[in-house]
Nucleic acid binder design. Structure first.
Lengths: 239, 239
DNA sequence: CGGAATATTGATCAAGATCAAAGCGAGTGG
DNA sequence: CCACTCGCTTTGATCTTGATCAATATTCCG
């Protein structure tokens, strides 16, 4: 029954996160999204008030149920948020790549745990400080609402994904990852187990389904990379 | 399945700063539902600016993809939001009972359809008008953020529900409905098909699972009513 | 290299879907 | 008041998808 369990406890306590206060904003951290003015305001506020922390692979950023005192932004690397269910299964809620914000929830305790999937640099800001800034700068306040609404839309999309067959879920996942990449080549920073836990499948099914898509000449697969050969086939499969 | 990007710049920037009063994170943000002062402000605003509309059973309130010009609040009756998938299956996103707000999304088109499950009275407010009010009254603005965050938490709970077995899903659904009722008796305004579409099951499985729970002496079942006889058993099953 | 972690592949199993057929219950008309 | 009907629900039999169990195979790193 029980699937993948975390067994990295020793690794966590071994390496203490490196903290750097008030880092200078570097160009690559200044990616401008569609909502330019507002996102710049929040970005700026976080860079001024925040600290950069580094996490290595599988290192926990925060635990499920811990006080939610901070808001986070991925500067580099990949992060996932997840929950361990009572039967031991792990449910991955989201993958956050560079520029993604996470732990935006308005409750006093985290409803998920978060960990780095690859080595990651994370910008961390005290929630209270950000709320003060939001009170002073309406652009910041509004951007928080926009980001929360985006997160809501993303989770709703995931519900739809979970309603589908294994083949549709994997195709949908690849298309989702492709949207975040350039071109047709997708680097996969996560393990097969992570993909499985995100899609509500087993690693065996993920593996078999990738093979199936490969045999349908829709993709090329290697361990850490997928190349989309035929997006229309994938989209059709995605349903 | 494209996600929508935020395009409400005019509505929000139209008037005064959105200010979050009481920016201290605790304990204000803890009991979001008991956020009396703010919820009253939004309630008042909606009652002043809104119109009451009546819908009969199965009547559409808005369609998937239609312009999202309004925000809604249930005054009486029950509403559901749903999506029809490409293969014809229907996915119910949420049930809203009296006092529930829906269509809070910050995008310019609805990502779901909504219909009345029983006869319903709905308070309808123009989104633009509400955004103007939100600009004038920070309590309204903040309550919008709180409600959006609540909706996010609700959808995340539903993802967890969908990860479980049929028995766990039905038990979880009953406990969720019980939280919204007084005592142990739950009136079910929706059909078995609606429950099935909400839980990602078939009506046959819902029916059989209710029987199973009845045989385990956890509930009493009739067509439109369920009585919880043994909450601890249900909670245990819920996982 | 070598050993552990991760991934693939194959065989079997089980939960829930699908197909099929009654039951039930509220509204209708004779 | 009772039979008829229609939509909803329950129950039963079978089938399918993806999980589980079990071996390899591959990749990653010391």
């Amino acid at each position: 029954m029980g699937r993948h369990m975390q067994t990295q406890a020793t690794a966590f306590s071994a390496s203490r996160p490196l903290v750097v206060r008030n880092p200078l904003p570097t160009p690559e951290y200044r990616q401008v999204s569609a909502d330019t003015e507002n996102s710049r305001a929040l970005e700026h506020a976080m860079l001024r008030a925040g600290a950069v922390m580094s996490f290595c692979r599988s290192e926990e950023i925060f635990g499920d149920g811990e006080p939610a005192d901070h808001i986070y932004r991925v500067l580099a690397g990949t992060v996932c948020t997840y929950k361990i269910l009572r039967d031991g299964r792990r449910n991955i809620n989201a993958f956050y790549l560079a520029d993604g914000y996470f732990a935006l929830e308005l409750v006093d305790r985290h409803s998920h745990a978060a960990e780095a999937i690859s080595g990651a640099k994370i910008l961390v800001v005290k929630r209270a400080a950000l709320m003060v800034l939001a009170g002073r700068d309406p652009a910041v306040a509004r951007q928080l609402l926009v980001l929360t609404a985006c997160e809501l839309a993303r989770v709703q999309d995931r519900v739809l994904l979970l309603a589908k067959t294994a083949e549709e879920r994997v195709a949908g996942f690849l298309l989702e990852m492709a949207k975040r990449s350039k071109g047709n080549s997708i680097e996969l920073p996560m393990l097969r187990q992570d993909i499985a836990d995100y899609l509500g499948l087993t690693i065996e099914t993920v593996s078999r389904t990738l093979k199936l898509l490969k045999d349908h000449a829709a993709i090329e697969v290697s361990t850490r990379q997928v190349v989309l050969l035929n997006r229309s086939t994938l989209s059709r499969i995605n349903g």
